[in-house]
Design a binder for these strands. Structure first.
Lengths: 154, 154
DNA sequence: TTACATGTAATAATATAAGTTACAGGTTGC
DNA sequence: GCAACCTGTAACTTATATTATTACATGTAA
């Protein structure tokens, strides 16, 4: 089981809005880049809007960034798209037997451990910004073009 | 969306096997502590057995630990119960448009970022053992008992 | 051989993800 | 105003995973 691809798509959308900032980025256009349905894009763009990451309005074509991409961390996106509820990355079994020493105390024992693991994950996401992703995309594309220009390479 | 509670249940089972090591821990008995069906326990116990964490045999009642609990990290359990496939904690959208600069490079750009976040999570789980959980359970229970002995406390 | 445990297949109920259709409501240009 | 086009959203479908449950085959021991 994986964390919903809404997270990856959210990163995709924000990167696209930056790289394509001179164009009008409609949900249909974004969807053709992500390779999905425009409604899926509008839904995720709605999440990003609620988090204050993009500007988008009914009736007006196109979304655009609401913040400098250096100020948008992957954690911002992760939280925006609601792929994991607050402190619920790890599921726990409900109502273990309180008559058992283990059942009575297991939840309180593992809660802080799970929380700290989740925090470690979030810290890692906090250290990366959309600007990092965008510059990596551009870098990869340039090196890819160089490779293509050299016959025999691969 | 949460990571399957199989992980939490796996920790519960191993802790119970330690605390209750003088008894015969049948799947039915464990199930009554976890508050679930014995078949669920047998399935998870099977995962733990495949990972070399417990001993359990067909026809013979009860499971027992195969390793010192100081040598069983939460990461061992996490991997044993197959809640997340290798390097697939984060889902990604399939087949983004290769004709688009972003679509063409987004996956390779985010893959290492996701991998490093996942690694941070796993490192956190690696630093905690079942021994830590067991001693915490015992500690919590003792302090709980003290509280119960003082009327008026709460 | 009886009693009982584990292993496992099959099924059902529930939840979530992701795609799709349909349409309401907002905006712009003619 | 109205036609064209966009976003927002509800409703539905399909697919997949989880958890619980029943049923039964297989293994062990008194």
């Amino acid at each position: 089981m994986s964390i919903s691809s809404r997270f990856a798509v959210g990163i995709h959308i924000l990167s696209l809005l930056e790289i394509n900032k001179d164009q009008v980025n409609t949900s249909e256009w974004i969807a053709s880049s992500v390779n999905t349905n425009p409604v899926v894009i509008r839904k995720i763009t709605g999440y990003l809007k609620n988090a204050g990451l993009v500007h988008v309005r009914p009736g007006i074509a196109g979304a655009c960034l609401a913040r400098d991409i250096k100020e948008i961390s992957l954690l911002d996106v992760y939280k925006a798209v609601n792929v994991v509820q607050e402190n619920e990355l790890f599921g726990v079994h409900e109502q273990p037997n309180p008559a058992c020493l283990v059942g009575k105390n297991i939840q309180q024992a593992i809660e802080p451990l799970f929380a700290s693991a989740q925090l470690a994950l979030e810290k890692a996401l906090e250290n990366v910004t959309i600007a990092d992703v965008v510059s990596d995309i551009i870098k990869r594309d340039q090196s890819g073009m160089v490779e293509n220009k050299k016959p025999g390479d691969l």
